[in-house]
Measured scan of single mutants.
Amino acid sequence: MASQGTKRSYEQMETDGERQNATEIRASVGKMIDGIGRFYIQMCTELKLSDYEGRLIQNSLTIERMVLSAFDERRNKYLEEHPSAGKDPKKTGGPIYKRVDRKWMRELVLYDKEEIRRIWRQANNGDDATAGLTHMMIWHSNLNDTTYQRTRALVRTGMDPRMCSLMQGSTLPRRSGAAGAAVKGVGTMVMELIRMIKRGINDRNFWRGENGRKTRSAYERMCNILKGKFQTAAQRAMMDQVRESRNPGNAEIEDLIFLARSALILRGSVAHKSCLPACVYGPAVASGYDFEKEGYSLVGIDPFKLLQNSQVYSLIRPNENPAHKSQLVWMACNSAAFEDLRVLSFIRGTKVSPRGKLSTRGVQIASNENMDAMESSTLELRSRYWAIRTRSGGNTNQQRASAGQISVQPAFSVQRNLPFDKPTIMAAFTGNTEGRTSDMRAEIIRMMEGAKPEEMSFQGRGVFELSDERAANPIVPSFDMSNEGSYFFGDNAEEYDN
């Protein structure tokens, strides 16, 4: 993207840094990872977990959730003011799984939030270390993106479920800051804005008074975040219109849905970061690795190297396929839920299948599930090659597409044709070009129609051997075009429920 120079890199967003050079960025990201790792080690000690239990991804998720809940100030305040039966607002906890007599047992633990905050700050040299908290939120978000298709949420806001490739980060909490905003897809931002506008339509006082002023500035800020994701002048001009509207209503909703559809071809720039579970960072720190000293990046080879040398386990339900569970977590670790499966298959070195073909449910185990038949197995999170994460949407291309997802959002900077089903997408653009945004709409449609099938995206960008740390010898991959490109292809993934 041309304006790259004016933006802070995501590592800076990730670490609240002012302008830093590459070495400083690597050190501050490393410091953040160190903090998460030290916190995780301490929690495993508190909970008396064995090494194996500490490497269980379900335990990692519970521990991450506990610290996120302990620092969720708004919710904590709300819980104190609106006490609900049987919930102690000062405590947080969740299921911890232990191996007892050759069987997995679930144990519900409860801790004072104050105590968890103390352990977290102690692991982070006394700081609140917001960057580390956001990092864990993005890992949870990436896992949700890989596990669930947001059909219901899309339909509720009037969008087409086939636009799911635009929904990265749709389950990120509001408090995820600049680093969170960077990884949100165009569809996620559109959905947040539509929800806001709908509230304004239904509630006369939404934009009024002292609160209304705050609401208005939040609305304009979200519009600017979305505008910054678009790469064409016409899309940005249309966002200006939406932002400046005196009284946002149905016309703005129409414009936003139009823009979301246009992003299936004229893709937005959305950041991709490899955020790993805390149970990967903990053992690495415990083994003596100093992330701050060595430096770390979320968008280069580092996460690949770390996963190459990590042992992570997962509980497996009786009829689940461990290899499929591994694929789910591998995609989440690489922030690749909406990437082209052919690119992923090449990088991973084994075939990556669409969601609907995987015999696996989510990673988390519900409290009512029976533990008797639970097994555990090693997650295979290694890769054959590594590639640089991208934040450009890439230019655009036609490809055989599917009944489910009709476009992709690249996660890796790797040369390819970008699949999208042009006739299906263009069919949504018939007729409606009147109104105050008509010239911009016409211009956007013209650009979409001009998108050429034979153009290559990320020209000359390749993948790298894991021994090639400096990215000196790019390998331009070859793809098996007979395979499906979309992950949520004609899909039956479970729906995400809060």
Score class of each variant (00 low, 15 high):
1 M>L: 08
4 Q>Y: 15
6 T>E: 00
9 S>C: 01
10 Y>T: 09
12 Q>E: 00
12 Q>N: 14
13 M>W: 07
17 G>P: 15
18 E>A: 09
18 E>Q: 06
18 E>W: 09
18 E>N: 10
20 Q>F: 01
22 A>K: 15
24 E>L: 06
26 R>D: 03
26 R>Q: 08
26 R>H: 09
30 G>I: 00
32 M>L: 00
33 I>C: 14
34 D>V: 13
35 G>R: 07
36 I>Q: 13
38 R>V: 04
39 F>C: 12
41 I>H: 03
45 T>W: 03
45 T>P: 12
50 S>K: 08
52 Y>M: 08
53 E>G: 02
53 E>N: 06
58 Q>K: 13
59 N>S: 02
59 N>F: 04
60 S>V: 10
61 L>Q: 10
62 T>F: 03
62 T>P: 09
64 E>T: 11
65 R>M: 05
67 V>I: 11
71 F>P: 12
74 R>T: 03
74 R>A: 11
74 R>M: 08
75 R>I: 01
76 N>H: 00
76 N>P: 00
77 K>F: 01
77 K>P: 02
77 K>Y: 00
77 K>D: 00
78 Y>L: 00
79 L>V: 12
79 L>K: 06
80 E>Q: 11
80 E>F: 12
80 E>Y: 14
82 H>W: 14
84 S>Q: 05
84 S>G: 13
87 K>V: 10
88 D>V: 03
89 P>D: 03
90 K>N: 14
90 K>A: 07
91 K>S: 05
91 K>D: 04
92 T>L: 10
93 G>L: 06
93 G>V: 01
95 P>S: 13
96 I>H: 04
97 Y>D: 05
97 Y>A: 08
98 K>Q: 14
100 V>K: 06
102 R>L: 14
105 M>T: 10
106 R>F: 05
106 R>W: 10
110 L>Y: 05
110 L>P: 13
110 L>C: 08
110 L>F: 09
113 K>S: 13
114 E>G: 08
115 E>D: 14
115 E>Y: 07
116 I>V: 15
116 I>R: 01
117 R>W: 04
118 R>H: 09
122 Q>T: 07
122 Q>R: 11
122 Q>H: 14
125 N>I: 10
127 D>Q: 14
129 A>K: 15
129 A>V: 13
129 A>Y: 01
130 T>I: 01
132 G>D: 10
133 L>S: 02
137 M>W: 03
137 M>D: 07
140 H>E: 14
140 H>T: 10
142 N>H: 11
145 D>I: 08
145 D>R: 07
148 Y>H: 09
150 R>G: 07
151 T>L: 11
152 R>C: 01
152 R>T: 01
153 A>P: 08
154 L>V: 14
155 V>H: 03
157 T>R: 04
158 G>V: 01
159 M>D: 09
160 D>C: 11
161 P>I: 02
162 R>G: 11
162 R>E: 11
164 C>Q: 09
168 Q>Y: 05
169 G>D: 03
170 S>A: 10
173 P>A: 14
176 S>E: 05
176 S>P: 01
177 G>M: 06
179 A>M: 10
179 A>P: 03
180 G>F: 13
182 A>N: 14
184 K>E: 04
184 K>S: 03
186 V>P: 06
187 G>M: 07
188 T>S: 15
188 T>R: 02
190 V>Y: 06
192 E>V: 04
198 K>F: 09
198 K>H: 07
200 G>E: 12
201 I>L: 15
202 N>W: 09
202 N>Q: 12
203 D>I: 03
203 D>Q: 06
205 N>P: 03
206 F>E: 00
206 F>D: 01
208 R>I: 03
208 R>W: 05
213 R>C: 03
215 T>C: 05
215 T>Y: 02
216 R>L: 04
220 E>K: 08
222 M>H: 06
226 L>N: 08
229 K>T: 05
229 K>Y: 04
229 K>W: 12
231 Q>H: 15
231 Q>C: 07
233 A>W: 03
235 Q>A: 10
235 Q>S: 07
239 M>G: 08
239 M>P: 01
239 M>V: 15
241 Q>E: 10
243 R>Y: 06
244 E>Q: 07
244 E>N: 13
244 E>R: 05
245 S>F: 03
246 R>S: 10
248 P>H: 08
248 P>Y: 01
249 G>C: 07
250 N>C: 14
252 E>S: 04
252 E>N: 10
254 E>V: 07
255 D>Y: 13
255 D>A: 02
258 F>R: 08
259 L>C: 09
260 A>V: 15
260 A>S: 14
263 A>V: 12
264 L>W: 13
270 V>Q: 15
271 A>G: 15
277 P>S: 13
277 P>N: 10
278 A>R: 03
278 A>C: 13
280 V>N: 10
282 G>C: 10
282 G>L: 10
283 P>N: 06
284 A>E: 05
284 A>G: 00
285 V>G: 09
285 V>M: 15
286 A>C: 09
287 S>A: 02
287 S>Y: 08
287 S>V: 04
288 G>Y: 04
289 Y>K: 09
290 D>S: 07
291 F>D: 11
291 F>L: 12
291 F>R: 04
292 E>D: 08
292 E>S: 09
293 K>Q: 11
294 E>R: 12
297 S>E: 01
298 L>M: 12
299 V>Y: 02
300 G>P: 06
300 G>T: 02
301 I>Y: 13
302 D>V: 06
304 F>T: 13
305 K>C: 11
305 K>D: 02
306 L>M: 14
310 S>W: 02
311 Q>A: 09
312 V>Y: 08
314 S>N: 13
316 I>F: 04
317 R>N: 07
319 N>V: 15
320 E>Y: 02
321 N>P: 02
324 H>F: 04
325 K>H: 06
325 K>G: 00
327 Q>F: 08
327 Q>K: 12
328 L>W: 06
328 L>G: 04
329 V>R: 06
331 M>L: 15
331 M>Y: 08
331 M>E: 06
331 M>F: 06
331 M>Q: 08
333 C>Q: 10
336 A>C: 12
337 A>E: 01
339 E>M: 08
343 V>E: 04
345 S>Y: 06
346 F>K: 06
347 I>S: 10
347 I>W: 02
351 K>L: 10
351 K>Y: 09
352 V>P: 09
352 V>A: 09
354 P>R: 13
354 P>Q: 04
359 S>R: 15
363 V>T: 04
366 A>H: 10
366 A>W: 06
366 A>N: 05
368 N>Q: 12
369 E>N: 07
369 E>Q: 06
370 N>H: 14
370 N>K: 10
371 M>R: 00
377 S>T: 14
380 E>L: 01
384 R>C: 11
384 R>G: 11
386 W>K: 09
386 W>Q: 08
387 A>M: 01
389 R>F: 02
389 R>S: 04
390 T>F: 05
390 T>P: 12
391 R>G: 09
392 S>A: 14
393 G>Q: 05
393 G>C: 09
394 G>S: 03
394 G>E: 11
394 G>M: 05
394 G>Y: 05
398 Q>M: 01
399 Q>P: 12
400 R>Y: 06
402 S>P: 03
403 A>K: 13
405 Q>T: 08
410 P>A: 15
412 F>N: 10
413 S>W: 10
414 V>L: 14
415 Q>H: 08
415 Q>N: 06
420 F>K: 00
423 P>I: 05
423 P>Y: 08
425 I>Q: 02
426 M>V: 15
428 A>R: 07
431 G>P: 09
432 N>T: 11
435 G>K: 02
436 R>T: 02
437 T>L: 04
437 T>Q: 06
438 S>T: 03
439 D>T: 01
439 D>A: 00
441 R>L: 05
441 R>H: 15
441 R>A: 08
444 I>T: 14
444 I>N: 00
444 I>D: 04
445 I>D: 02
445 I>K: 09
446 R>H: 05
448 M>A: 06
449 E>F: 04
450 G>Y: 15
450 G>L: 13
451 A>Y: 01
454 E>L: 14
455 E>F: 07
460 G>R: 15
460 G>W: 05
460 G>L: 14
463 V>K: 02
463 V>G: 09
464 F>C: 02
465 E>W: 07
466 L>F: 14
466 L>N: 00
467 S>V: 11
468 D>I: 01
470 R>H: 00
471 A>G: 02
472 A>P: 13
474 P>C: 00
475 I>K: 01
478 S>E: 00
478 S>I: 03
478 S>G: 12
479 F>S: 14
480 D>C: 06
480 D>W: 04
482 S>F: 02
483 N>L: 14
483 N>P: 02
485 G>R: 15
486 S>V: 00
487 Y>W: 03
488 F>L: 05
488 F>T: 01
489 F>T: 14
489 F>N: 05
490 G>S: 12
491 D>K: 01
494 E>W: 01
494 E>F: 01
494 E>S: 01
495 E>M: 12
496 Y>E: 02
497 D>A: 13
497 D>F: 12
497 D>R: 00
497 D>G: 14
498 N>K: 15
